[in-house]
């Protein structure tokens, strides 16, 4: 909405909705704006990488090996003489892709499982929750590592691992929200007029659990980026010469004494990306529902 329009519209007549109110609250949250700017910059950097980077991210130039930061190589070069700044920008696209696709994959499966589990209850609920318990018994990164152990390392497999890794969190949050929304009168009303179950879930429950799902999605992008980078660092994710941040850091480990910048900058990039999505997620949570606990 343009500012002039907002000023001219009388307050009483201004249409209000959960999303509009949340948007206003979000814009007032300085930390969230800061996070949003970081996220936008990383997205812009990743998208523009092929057009603005001065060097090829893969092609080696051994004569320029391990150069410290300078005007020609802003963040220096790695052992193969590749420009680290260019690789970090290309890496942004890779990390964002893993982050978004991984979180979306986990979110999609988790939302369906959570909806079904919370809505039907009973035996279905018990089976799904037991499965979630089993997944959650593999703490943190361990679940992603176990999945990689089965499907093998590689960039595409990391997306699958990170996605499945996110499923239990989504399932639990969605199930919890469904259990509280299900009690409300409009659901009973829909059922009274004979709406079929899939319609109730799709049109009545889903829109009402969208807020927590959106918050969780944002935060899980941060987790997905961090998990993917961790897997690559361990040698279980993206393989060289892919300019993935975790893999770059792993390369830099061998030259820590000689050229500490090789390991330093990719790590800062990961930190910044995770910070950006977390701040944005925190801001969204506060804006959508201050009482929400995720």
């Amino acid at each position: 909405m343009a500012i002039s329009e907002a000023v001219e519209t009388p307050i009483a007549a201004r249409p209000r909705s959960l999303w509009r109110d949340a948007w206003t609250r979000l814009l007032r949250n300085r930390a969230a704006i800061f996070g949003g700017i970081i996220v936008l910059l990383i997205i812009a950097g990743g998208l523009a990488a092929p057009f603005i980077t001065p060097y090829d991210p893969i092609k080696q130039n051994l004569r320029a090996s391990l150069q410290p930061p300078s005007p020609t190589h802003l963040l220096g070069t790695d052992v193969h003489g590749r420009d680290i700044f260019s690789r970090i920008l290309y890496g942004a696209a890779i990390s964002l892709r893993i982050g978004f696709l991984g979180a979306l994959l986990g979110g999609a499966i988790g939302v369906v499982l959570g909806l079904v589990s919370g809505f039907y209850g009973g035996a279905v609920d018990m089976i799904i929750m037991r499965l979630v318990d089993i997944q959650l018994a593999f703490p943190g990164l361990l679940l992603a590592i176990a999945i990689i152990a089965v499907i093998g390392p590689g960039l595409e497999n990391v997306i699958i691992a990170v996605g499945i890794f996110s499923v239990p969190t989504f399932t639990r949050v969605v199930r919890g929200s469904v259990l509280s929304v299900k009690q409300q009168d409009f659901v009973t009303a829909a059922r009274t007029v004979g709406a079929p179950n899939h319609r109730i879930m799709r049109l009545h429950l889903f829109p009402n659990i969208l807020a927590p799902v959106l918050v969780l999605l944002t935060m899980r992008i941060a987790t997905a980026i961090l998990t993917a980078a961790s897997l690559s660092f361990l040698g279980l994710g993206a393989q060289p010469p892919t300019p993935e941040w975790g893999a770059m850091l792993s390369d830099g480990r061998d030259y820590l004494v000689l050229a500490p910048h090789v390991a330093t900058f990719p790590g800062l990039a990961i930190l910044l990306a995770v910070l950006g999505f977390n701040l944005l997620g925190d801001g969204l949570r506060d804006a959508l529902d201050p009482r929400m606990r995720i």
Partner: peptide, 15 residues
């Protein structure tokens, strides 16, 4: 604390 949560442990370790 926020930075502590967002910092990749492998990077912190190397630093």
């Amino acid at each position: 604390a926020l930075l502590g949560i967002c910092t990749p442990s492998f990077w912190l370790g190397l630093m």
